[in-house]
Design a protein around this nucleic acid. Structure first.
Lengths: 195, 195, 195, 195
DNA sequence: AATGAATGAGGGTTCATTCAT
DNA sequence: CATGAATGAACCCTCATTCAT
């Protein structure tokens, strides 16, 4: 099962800072989170944040970039191991859910839902990594369609599936009776039907 | 086709205010939108806003409440006209997409994506209307499942579908080659498969 | 005798703000003056300053631009009335001292001594007005030299004289036994000798 | 010709620190220069500065005190060698220009133009050294007046001359066609007329 | 000596909100 | 109703200074 280790190294001040910031951004939104909130969560003064990051936006950027890179790496690995088109689609889902509800859940939620808060320049820069990630989705879904597993165009299906999974951050809790594996199967049968 | 008339009456100062605010909240987020932004969009001074609404949050609340009420009304109407379980599910989708991409798109996007910005009290109050709306979804999807159209539990399917549709506000543009009707069919075949 | 009326209209909030700011900039320097200092001198809150000026530097710029324009106007007038080269040089000195020690003394000191605090763009823009002013000095001093009143090149003499007069803001006080007229005569005899 | 050796010993860390600080203070002003600026110019961390000086103001004080002492020593020497009142006045000017445009130019500019930045206590303390220096000026100029070389009172003439020379730091560049010797002669003829 | 993370006060600025006109 | 100046709290960020290493 995909189980990412903590995205941010809890041994370093920088890692703890990013983890705390991600949590707050997720809960309150980037704009509504103050640097004093972040500092308070770490037990330091707000001025001290700026030894690690030059601006508040740099923190957001670092959070997002870290998730983007890690997700792309993990997805590449998992797709390489998938034996069938169905397994490949399951990998798409499993990784997305692992990030959204595993140790990286805060950062992943921020990446998905606070995209708007980045400045244009920054957003454009990060878009490259995102596009590479979604290109893998499109390829995988196109293969599934060729194999007759779905009739929906890959780009549209990708957006539907990504939306459905991103939305789980608002309602799914890992401690629910529904396990992440079970949730993965539900999503898989949404996209490809029951086998 | 479901075609809601403008949510906010452009004949009244209040209606124009809400429409402008909704547009800005959608584009920049509630927290990042200033009352001066809203006032400037209306060609008035920021102080004048407060003759219409006591606080900035009141504006957000009014926007959301208006959409919630209208969506609930429209959905009730449409479900009453649906002849089959499949048509009923199509109505769920059609209405959601009509709101997300028709004249009420700004307000609907705000309702879906800036939920967090409301204070706890306000959020709880609005949740009643939302719950009534989603109860209709659950019933409809339960009926569809009983009819053998899907195997996924109604609550889970509802969240998947709602997420997939909510996400279209980030990528679908009505002026695209893909018509709203076509998009509706794609979503329907995602949920229930091709007939 | 040249007696400029107050540079900044004490009837308007903007005028009072500029007068207070000029005084503080003169006493403590631009960088060492805080917007809270300025606000306190006016009996308002610091945030209120920003209804009148967008930034602190805008205040400095407005102070300087006002003096520059007024000095150029006054000098043009006075030179037109001078009958002899010696009288023309006296006008240069009299106006400079009138600004440095009359009602505009704060703003003029700031203009002379806090030039560095302006951003490059702003400085370049203001330099146009300053250059026009000094062009009049150069012409006047060139005429005096042609008339045999001095042997020093106009540009050099201009800088010497301007420096000598600018420096009076650090030591001369109008309430001293030495009147401004007497000081003017001393400066005139420095430049052109005793007649 | 008066040619002071470097004020600050480039062989010692302290000397290099003072030289760098003087340069920055001159360029940006004391208040606008940060201790990080100074540290960066030396290639060290800002915290390390405080092994050499207890406060930022101590640095400014050391810069000023060093110039004051050196100028007083040099002036005493040069006046002792002057044979005539005119030569004595030339020495006043030559030393001032040597400091303003020779190897000590940064520190001297700071002394002349950032006097305001010192705390009251420090300023009062340094004023003793300055007063001794200017007492020599006053004596020299009084002698020149007794000799009929000028009609202006010594204190006033001193301020005029000091201002005119101090101002050269804003416009005169040693690499100009005008040599420092030539500039000295111009200033001398300003004060005493052409012989 | 030097580091570099941390401090904590204070910097300029923004902003929702108020209110006399 | 609308204005626009004012508020005052809060914002992000800077800075001189400290200190354990």
């Amino acid at each position: 099962m995909t189980q990412p280790s903590p995205l941010f190294d809890p041994e370093t001040a920088r890692g703890r800072l990013l983890a705390s910031a991600a949590r707050l951004f997720r809960d309150k939104g980037y704009a509504a989170t103050t640097v004093r909130d972040i500092a308070a969560a770490l037990g330091i003064q707000s001025g001290s944040l700026f030894h690690h990051f030059r601006t508040k936006e740099d923190i957001l950027h670092a959070v997002m970039e870290t998730v983007i890179t890690a997700m792309l790496d993990d997805l590449t690995d998992q797709l390489a191991q998938a034996q069938t088109p169905r397994e490949a689609v399951r990998a798409l889902i499993a990784i997305e859910l692992a990030y959204l509800h595993g140790p990286a859940s805060d950062a992943t939620s921020v990446l998905f839902h606070d995209w708007r808060a980045l400045s244009d320049d920054r957003r454009t820069a990060l878009l490259q990594g995102r596009n590479a990630y979604f290109a893998l989705w499109d390829q995988t879904l196109a293969t599934a369609r060729s194999a007759g597993l779905t009739t929906i165009e890959p780009e549209i299906l990708r957006q539907f599936l990504h939306g459905a999974l991103a939305w789980t951050s608002f309602w799914y809790r890992p401690d629910r009776p529904l396990s992440r594996e079970a949730l993965t199967e539900r999503a898989l049968s949404l996209v490809l039907g029951s086998p």
